[in-house]
């Protein structure tokens, strides 16, 4: 029997053939526990006999949260390692800070979206050298990046998951610099920089 091992040239989107790493295993377990928990909850609604199963549900919910939490920490570590310390460290520090804030604001179960962090990892790997962005979170825990220069230049990226982003870009009109052009739309996490750069040359000032 032979075992095939693939080298993935373009690893940002899953092909299903990648070797399982710690992060992926955590995600699979989290998904499995969550599915079990939902399945079990729906059985309870049919048969009102809840006591022992309710405890099991709580345990599964807790395990699922722990796996998610571990997944987020692993992703933060990967984000830190994906860039030179001058860029990666401030981003990871900020994400840890946001994680603390969201737990303070919404309770210990609140978490940054792992799907959004996976998208961030892809985005950062492709973005190259740039000023570290301002980072905040949406109400659903998605990562929201923001670069601003003066009053007339803004580039914001809302990373919805590991594939899709929403963006907004403000820039001076090339013929009428006193007027600000404003763009918004959706794109994929690996193309948004180039899509927006075509419309308003963001790369020249976020990479300065």
């Amino acid at each position: 029997m032979t075992s095939a091992s693939f080298v993935i040239d373009d690893p940002q989107w899953s092909t299903g053939d990648e070797t399982l790493n710690r992060n992926k295993i955590a995600r699979l377990f989290a998904d499995m526990f969550q599915a079990k928990s939902v399945e079990s909850a729906s059985e309870h609604s049919l048969f009102q006999d809840v006591s022992a199963e309710a405890v099991q549900d709580q345990e599964m919910g807790e395990l699922s949260r722990q796996w998610r939490s571990q997944e987020v920490l692993d992703l933060l570590e990967q984000i830190g390692q994906s860039h030179a310390s001058t860029v990666g460290e401030p981003i990871v520090d900020r994400l840890h800070c946001l994680r603390d804030m969201v737990k303070e604001e919404e309770g210990p179960e609140a978490e940054i979206s792992p799907d959004s962090l996976r998208g961030l990892l892809v985005f950062l790997r492709l973005a190259g050298d740039y000023h570290p962005p301002q980072i905040s979170l949406t109400p659903e825990g998605d990562v929201y990046l923001r670069w601003k220069a003066g009053k007339e230049r803004l580039f914001s990226v809302h990373i919805q998951n590991d594939k899709l982003v929403r963006f907004v870009a403000f820039c001076p009109n090339p013929r009428h610099p006193d007027i600000t052009d404003r763009f918004s739309g959706t794109a994929t996490v690996d193309t948004v920089l180039y899509t927006v750069d075509k419309a308003c040359s963001v790369l020249e000032w976020i990479r300065e």
Partner: peptide, 21 residues
């Protein structure tokens, strides 16, 4: 505006005006 919707410079990000589901 919760702290997680502000930028690290203390400015309000667009995320502060997002709707919850």
């Amino acid at each position: 505006c919760p702290g997680s919707r502000l930028t690290q410079d203390g400015e309000v990000s667009g995320a502060a005006f997002y709707l919850r589901p």
